[in-house]
Design a protein around this nucleic acid. Sequence first.
DNA 1: GATTGTTTAGGCGGGA
DNA 2: TCCCGCCTAAACAATC
Length: 284
Amino acid sequence: MNAHGITGTCYMNADYVNPVGVTNPSVSGQNSLLVAAGVASMNPPLQSAGPVLSPGFGPICSGPTPRRASTYAKPPYSYISLISMAIQQSGTKMLTLNQIYQWIMDLFPFYRQNQQRWQNSVRHSLSFNDCFIKVTRSKDWPGKGSFWALHPDSGDMFQNGCFLRRQKRFRSGTKACTDAQRSGSGFSSSPQSNPRRAEVVPLQHYHQQQAAHQNLEPNHPHCSFSHRFSISSLMFEQQNQTPYLPVAYGGDSVSSANRTIPDPSHTDPFYHPLQNYSRTIMDC
DNA sequence: GATTGTTTAGGCGGGA
DNA sequence: TCCCGCCTAAACAATC
């Protein structure tokens, strides 16, 4: 088995994204798309991008109408991509680990199986990659685990918003370290000097950084992805594939449809009750 | 005890 | 061929 879900660049995967034959028009403007898709982009992910729509990742080699699928092919996105998408989709631009899990499982049925395996990989990706920063909880928001956010300078990781293989791995200036250095004999495992540990930012500092960054870069790639493998394209395709959803989940459809979204007020410091709504698969 | 986070190791595929 | 990005597994510590 090929351990890699990624088979190549964005262009090599061109056939993968449309298993139900949805033609993806060129899109621009993530927010408008999300609104068009009935998704309030400013809402936290567990309310907004919840168990919405299957991107339609059915078996790659199925026939011309692979609508009834009992198993799902692995999406062409790397874990880094998925995490990035989840964080970007959230109104707060930061999620807990569990919220990231939920977002991925809600959007990609493939990841409702073998959870231990891929969740370990997700955790590894978060810790390992400089593009993710850990935002510590404030005393006002006790709970398990920190929030995870995207490094403010990581926006160009995915060229033009393409969420497949990155052009170049993001490395923050303070944590320059290569795989070779890690695997080589020169790597120090000392916790204090270890450059691999995720950057930790207090919640308040993170908010300040976010505000400053948005002011400086109104056209930041985070907000202007337009590639067909971008999150906006993904959401657009979900919208177009809605008619196929009731049968797309196979044996998992019942549990998915009846699943309610966990109360985010326990974990989301930005939670607002008016934003909360539970959606089911059938609602879409 | 479960979850979260960190670290190490090994392997595969793509691109230069 | 080598480097790089990525995936997976596993062990361990810290925290809730």
